[in-house]
Amino acid sequence: MIISLQRVTKVYRMGEVEVHALRGIDLEVEEGEFVAVVGASGSGKSTLMNILGCLDVPTTGRYLLQGIDVADLDDDQLAVVRNRLIGFVFQSFNLIPRATALHNVEMPLIYGGQRRERRDRALAALEVVGLADRAQHLPSELSGGQQQRVAIARALINDPAIVLADEPTGNLDSESSAEIMQVFTELNREGRTVILITHEADIAAYARRVVRMRDGLIVGDERLAVTPGSEERWR
């Protein structure tokens, strides 16, 4: 069991108003799963993503990540967990604009205190996403699809327990979207745990398990049969 959420709630205070973003989530994810979390905006899926990614902690309930209860961790310990166990892929790529692709990819290693082989590992990660020849380019010199692939390389560099992708194709055209989803599919095929947050059914269809959310609750959890030709619909 890589992820275990038990009766997780999250309450925000917006001025005087309390917003119940999550109202009691139970979710378990096994190693090697490819899960899509779908739901309309306001359904709580972004909050869930923040909690799964250890950017935020639950108001009540327990979140065990590889057996670690994150509620017990302080800010810096959460930062270490994010660095070691989680690879983020964001809708808006979130690369550092002043840094080259290579430097962006090796950044988690810098914060992880890795000194040796940093460059080689970063180059290898870029190789995996097919961008080894763009290592010295700045994000502004890359297309959206290429930027997202750099972000994926960055997410993979520390060999994380889970890859968390928040609307990874939201800013991409359909062709680039298909390429990115193929990268995720490939990663999952190699045994990597991928959690995908999306509101597009087409994108969710790449996953093997779809979790539906509405009003801060999980309202559906279905496992899909593997459909090898699913990406064909994008062609």
Partner: peptide, 16 residues
């Protein structure tokens, strides 16, 4: 601010 957010998301601690 955004860059700081990115750095924190990928593992920068406060002291970093």
């Amino acid at each position: 601010t955004r860059e700081i957010g990115i750095r924190k998301a990928i593992g920068a601690r406060r002291r970093d």
